[in-house]
C-alpha cells in the first residue's frame, strides 16, 4: 500500500485554477503515501505565502492553493510554488507516521434500523451482518479529502469485498451521523443532507461543531477507526437511535 519511505516526489504539475489559484498536481493515483507529501506542501505554502494565502484545499492527489492576486501576482505565486516543490522534492520524504494526522475512534451502532443498507451490502458481499461489521470496523482508514459538506470526510481504502456502488437514486434526507460506504470509500454524514451512499449504521461522534476549535473533527491525513457498540452504549454516548424512515427513496440530490 505505502510507497517506500525514502522515495522521491514525482514530477509535480502546477495547473491554472483561475485568477487567484494554482492547482498543484502531485500524484496521479490514490495512495495513503500521498497524504504526507500533500501535508508537507500545505505547511510550506502557509509559511511561504503568508498574508497572501487565502485558502488551501488538499484532496487525494492535489493541493489547490488560493491566494490574493492583489498581494501576490499569479506569476509570482506560480514561481513561489515551483520553488517550494523543487525544495520539497530535493529533501527527504516527509514522515508517514505520527505528524501526518490524528487518530480517532468513532463509536458506531451498526443496525438495520439506522443502517438500512446493511442487509443489502451483506447479500452483495455474500457475508453475514456480523462479517460486514467486522470487515468495516476491522481496519483504520485515512482521511483523503473533505468536501460535499462541512466536515464530510472521504475515507479509505475500504476492503474490496465491501465495494458497492452508490444508490441509483440518492436519498433526500440522510440522518446526521449516518455511517456510509461506496466504492472503496467510507464516510459519516456531519449533518442531515441528501446522499447516495449505502448506510450501515450511526456514530455518536460530533463531526462538525462551529463552537469547537478547528470546527471539524476529522482532517485530511487523520486515521479513523469505527468501533462497533451495542444500542445501549450508543445511546449512553448520546447517539440518536431514531430509526430511518423506511419509505421508498425519492428522486433528487
Amino acid at each position: 500500500m505505502s510507497q517506500a519511505p525514502n522515495s522521491g516526489l514525482p514530477t509535480p504539475r502546477i495547473e491554472s485554477a483561475g485568477l487567484d489559484g494554482w492547482l498543484v498536481r502531485l500524484f496521479s493515483t490514490i495512495d495513503e503515501a500521498n497524504l504526507a507529501w500533500l501535508g508537507a506542501l500545505a505547511r510550506r505554502c502557509e509559511t511561504a505565502f503568508g498574508e497572501a494565502l487565502v485558502d488551501l484545499v488538499p484532496s487525494y492527489t492535489t493541493l489547490l492553493v488560493v491566494f490574493d492576486p492583489l498581494r501576490l501576482s499569479p506569476e509570482a505565486a506560480r514561481r513561489r510554488l515551483a520553488e517550494l516543490l523543487a525544495d520539497l522534492g530535493a529533501g527527504p520524504a516527509p514522515e508517514q507516521e505520527g505528524a501526518a494526522g490524528e487518530e480517532h475512534e468513532l463509536l458506531t451502532w451498526y443496525d438495520p434500523s439506522v443502517g438500512p443498507d446493511l442487509e443489502r451490502v451483506a447479500r452483495h458481499a455474500d457475508m453475514s451482518l456480523e462479517e460486514v461489521i467486522d470487515c468495516h470496523a476491522g481496519q483504520a482508514y485515512r482521511v483523503f479529502a473533505l468536501g460535499f459538506a462541512p466536515g464530510f470526510a472521504f475515507m479509505g481504502l475500504l476492503d474490496r469485498r465491501l465495494e458497492v456502488p452508490r444508490l441509483d437514486t440518492p436519498r433526500q434526507r440522510v440522518p446526521v451521523n449516518s455511517v456510509a460506504i461506496t466504492g472503496r470509500q467510507t464516510a459519516a454524514y456531519p449533518a442531515v443532507s441528501p446522499g447516495g451512499w449505502n448506510l450501515l449504521g450511526r456514530t455518536t461522534a460530533r463531526l462538525f461543531d462551529r463552537d469547537r476549535e478547528g470546527f471539524s473533527l476529522l482532517r485530511v491525513g487523520d486515521r479513523v477507526r469505527f468501533v462497533p457498540v451495542d444500542r445501549a452504549t450508543f445511546e449512553r454516548h448520546g447517539g440518536d437511535a431514531t430509526p430511518m424512515e423506511t419509505r421508498p427513496v425519492e428522486a433528487g440530490e
Binding site: 485554477a17 483561475g18 487567484d20 489559484g21 492547482l23 498536481r25 493515483t29 490514490i30 484545499v57 488538499p58 484532496s59 487525494y60 492527489t61 492535489t62 493541493l63 489547490l64 488560493v66 479529502a145 468536501g147 472521504f154
Partner: peptide, 10 residues
C-alpha cells in the same frame, strides 16, 4: 477525475 479542489468560476 479524482476529486480535487475547485476554484470560483470553474
Amino acid at each position: 477525475l479524482i476529486s480535487e479542489g475547485i476554484g470560483l468560476g470553474a
